[in-house]
Simulated scan of single mutants.
Amino acid sequence: MNVDLVLRAVSRTMPAASRSRHLEQWRADVAGASGVGMRPGDVVRGAIAVALTADRDAPALTGEPRGAAPRRLSRRGIALIAAIVAVLVSQWLTGDAGSSGSGIPSALELVLAAAHSVLGVLAFIGALVAVALFAGAAALSRSVAARIAFVVTAAGVAVLTFGWGSAISAEIAAAVVGLTLAGAAVGLAAAWRAMPLVLERRSAPLRRRRPIALAGLAAVAALLGLGAVDTLVWNPLAKVPGWGLDAIYAAMIERDRFEPAVAVAFVAVWAGVWLAVAIAVTAVALGPRGAWLTPRRLGILYLAVIGAALFLRLFSGFGIGMSIADSFAATGGQVSAASLIFDVVGPVSVAVALLLFGWAPAGRVAPYARAGAA
């Protein structure tokens, strides 16, 4: 048996702040075991016993105030579930978007189908991780109410995950969803009430903020430009195959009294509003008072802007979409290749923003505070 490999594996189960310390101690015990009449296997068994019985919420092990661990786990679980819901709801809303298009390239169709399949698999794995996170929060919580609530939440997520594809009735599904949401709300309230919320001041120098800010602004501007062109040009061409853009617009004006200037104005307002938001975020990030916008926070903001803008693009193109539907008996949805790509990019951006929000860096306490709290 490779004793050092086993000890490294056991140390990985300990809280991150104390892993190296425990591994160093166990290695020292193995080195001196023969001098006190012990075998290396005895040290391994002792290490496993420590890992199984350790108080994983103790500040001496976590480097955090007591109560921070269950709160962090529950926050991550909530963020993960919210990200999964954002992706699944988007897929449900746009599931048949490509059924009436003019025929997107087969390669792109395969890529989009693969992307949706991958998102489905990731959603399933994420749900299992969320169950583990809520179970961990229940195990570490000192409040009985929080423990019960997080157990209910974990059980509800598990039931919904494995019952999603089965013949579960709508009434049962609604009841499970209600219990899960109630459990999460009660658990969060109990966990967050157990320890006052203390926001840790974090900052980032300009050299770390600048590339994220400029890349985020460029990404938002590019997506807004492509979205505007898609709404006014590519999507109409995809809905009415065989027609030129001028002919499509002329037919809508004649048959439906369509006003191109109004459609352009709606799209311009949509793009202008979100571009202004992105510019404002960038200006703050690059300014002297933008140190609080760490790369993680900037990522959350830009991804949220992208997700919200791509979702609200549906409303900016509502008028032209309905005019096409009335004039050509076509679908009112957006079916171009770019639209189908946006249907993936938008919810994924929101999901990643939620995950970044949930996976906030863990707070730390000073060494003297660890010793005192232990």
Rank of each mutant, 00 (worst) to 15 (best):
A184H: 10
A185M: 07
A185I: 11
V186G: 02
V186H: 02
V186A: 05
V186T: 05
G187V: 13
G187S: 13
L188W: 13
A189I: 10
A189P: 04
A190M: 02
A191R: 10
R193L: 15
R193V: 06
R193I: 07
A194K: 05
M195A: 15
M195V: 15
M195N: 12
P196E: 01
P196V: 05
P196D: 02
L197T: 11
L197F: 13
L199W: 11
E200A: 08
E200M: 07
R201L: 06
R201T: 13
R202K: 14
R202N: 08
A204C: 06
A204G: 06
P205R: 05
L206Q: 04
R207K: 07
R208Y: 04
R209Q: 12
R210L: 12
R210A: 14
P211N: 08
I212N: 00
I212H: 00
A213F: 07
A213V: 10
A213E: 07
A213D: 05
L214D: 01
L214Q: 02
L214S: 02
G216P: 03
L217V: 00
A218I: 06
A219E: 14
V220W: 15
V220K: 10
A221I: 08
A221G: 04
A221E: 05
A221L: 15
A221R: 03
L224I: 12
L224M: 15
L224G: 12
L224W: 07
L224H: 10
G225N: 07
L226S: 14
L226T: 12
G227Q: 09
G227S: 10
G227M: 10
G227Y: 08
G227A: 07
A228C: 08
A228E: 09
V229P: 09
D230M: 02
T231F: 08
T231K: 13
L232K: 09
N235P: 02
P236A: 05
P236E: 10
L237G: 12
V240A: 00
V240R: 00
V240N: 02
V240P: 01
P241D: 04
P241C: 03
W243P: 01
G244K: 03
L245P: 02
D246R: 14
A247V: 02
A247C: 01
